[in-house]
Design a protein around this nucleic acid. Structure first.
Lengths: 114, 114
DNA sequence: CACATGCATCGATGAGTGTCAATATCGACC
DNA sequence: GGTCGATATTGACACTCATCGATGCATGTG
């Protein structure tokens, strides 16, 4: 389901291809929302995995809405979730964040590029 | 017009605030589109400023549509444009890209966080 | 001044998105 | 097995957005 073909060269290095742009836009759409940004940050800034029940009280939104946003973050490959008994815990996928960070890098760094 | 209050701590460092999330979401919405990603990359990967007339042939889209996307990138503070005679040239604002890069950093680096 | 060219703006339209209430599912516990 | 609490799914609705054709505006040229 998750493509993540490759496409990680910084935007500023060379013009991004059409397909890469489409795939990256999906991931960026997932973070281009105030609620999902906060959700992602709340999950990422924790030492332990985060229960949905811990996230709900942080928002003035219904439970289905939060569930919906979490699903979008999951489908974008930014977080993963797992059921443990009654609760569902989530955590971030660091590589996904690193990929975005590298995408916007302006100084190519060029460190041992093979 | 451009807020850019501050808000640059990585998402993974501490939970982002409501206002910062809203402001950042605007910028991210600007890049969360395949056409705008390619536009930004085309402009960023150049040595010289880029003329709109150089961008148009890269897309199967009407000129008003490209103009519309450029305006969104401009309003997001990602690029700037200037008229020079007949043509309008654009260039990226490196700080804006750096800000996004830092946002998704997973290793806080912690370099002299005075 | 008249005209051509490069780009921006406007208005309309179809597709996509965020939100909720209602309902379903899943696991725990009695 | 029945019930309850936690989360997911569904359907509907209002709203936003990407796109276009038509048009406007500015600049350069004959």
């Amino acid at each position: 389901m998750s493509k993540q073909t490759s496409c990680c060269a910084p935007l500023a290095r060379e013009p991004i291809g059409k397909d890469d742009a489409a795939e990256l836009a999906k991931v960026l759409k997932a973070v281009a929302d105030p609620v999902r940004l906060r959700l992602l940050s709340l999950i990422a800034a924790r030492d332990e995995d985060t229960c949905v029940c811990d996230l709900l009280p942080e928002f003035d939104l219904s439970q289905p809405t939060i569930s919906h946003h979490l699903k979008i973050l999951r489908e974008a490959g930014l977080i993963e979730s797992e059921r443990r008994g009654t609760w569902v815990y989530s955590w971030v996928i660091p590589q996904a964040l690193d990929r975005l960070s590298a995408l916007f890098t302006t100084a190519p760094a060029e460190t041992g590029a093979r």
